[in-house]
C-alpha cells in the first residue's frame, strides 16, 4: 500500500479552503503550513494564465528527509506516509535542508495567532500539545485516515479537486485519475518519487 494524493488543477480555484481546513484540523502555529496554496502566473498580456498550486508534503517514496535524519525521527510508515516522531526529533533541521519542496517547518517556540492577546480556547484545545524545537509537517491526517475519514484538506475542498487513496492499487480512484488525466509530480528531477500528483489545469 502506498497512500497518495491527486490534486486536480482544473478543478482548483485557489480558495485556500485546504490551507485553512488544515489549520483548523491541526491547529498549526503561525507560519507553519502542512498545506498551503501558491499562486503563479504564466504568459504575457493578454495571453496570460493565473494558476493556483496547492502544495503539501509529497510523502516521497524515496524521502531524502528520512535518509538525512540523524535520530530516526523522520520515518516512513508501511502505508507510505512519511511522518515525524517528535519524541525523537532534536530539531537539527537537516530534513528541512534535504526536502526539495520546502514543505517542512520548524516550530521554534510557543506561538499563537493573537500574540500578546493570548491563545484562544481553540488553540489551547488543539495546538497546545505541539512540541516546540521540532520540525513539523503534513502526515496526510493520519488519525483521520485511521478512523476511516479523508484527510481534512481532501474532505473539505469545495471544488472536489483533491483525491486520496492507494497508489499501489491500479483500480483506485487516484491511480485511475493519474493514468487517465496524465498526472504528474512536482520536480520529478529531484528523484524522490512523490506520492502527491497533479492533474493538468
Amino acid at each position: 500500500m502506498r497512500l497518495g494524493m491527486v490534486i486536480d488543477l482544473k478543478r482548483c480555484i485557489g480558495c485556500y479552503g485546504c490551507q485553512i481546513a488544515c489549520k483548523a484540523e491541526h491547529g498549526t502555529p503561525p507560519g507553519v503550513f502542512y498545506a498551503r496554496v501558491l499562486k503563479r502566473e504564466e504568459g504575457q498580456y493578454p495571453n496570460v494564465k493565473q494558476f493556483s498550486l496547492p502544495v503539501l508534503c509529497n510523502h516521497c517514496e524515496e524521502p531524502p528527509c528520512v535518509d538525512v535524519c540523524p535520530t530516526g525521527a523522520s520515518f516512513k510508515w508501511s502505508d507510505g506516509i512519511v511522518d515525524i516522531d517528535h519524541d525523537k526529533c532534536v530539531g537539527c533541521r537537516a530534513c528541512m535542508m534535504a526536502c526539495p519542496y520546502n514543505n517542512r517547518y520548524f516550530n521554534d517556540g510557543n506561538q499563537n495567532y493573537f500574540g500578546d492577546a493570548g491563545s484562544t480556547p481553540f488553540e489551547r484545545a488543539r495546538a497546545a500539545r505541539h512540541p516546540t524545537g521540532v520540525v513539523m509537517k503534513c502526515n496526510f491526517c493520519r488519525d483521520r485516515v485511521r478512523a476511516g475519514k479523508m484527510p481534512a484538506c481532501v474532505a473539505n475542498c469545495p471544488t472536489v479537486a483533491r483525491h486520496f487513496g492507494d497508489l499501489d492499487d491500479p483500480n483506485s480512484e487516484v491511480s485511475r485519475l493519474i493514468k487517465e488525466r496524465g498526472g504528474f509530480n512536482l520536480h520529478p528531477e529531484a528523484g524522490t518519487k512523490p506520492s502527491v500528483y497533479y492533474l493538468p489545469a
Partner: peptide, 13 residues
C-alpha cells in the same frame, strides 16, 4: 454540500 471555502472553515478564529 459538506465543503467550505477558506473563510468558512476558518470561522472559529
Amino acid at each position: 454540500k459538506g465543503r467550505l471555502c477558506g473563510k468558512g472553515v476558518g470561522g472559529l478564529m
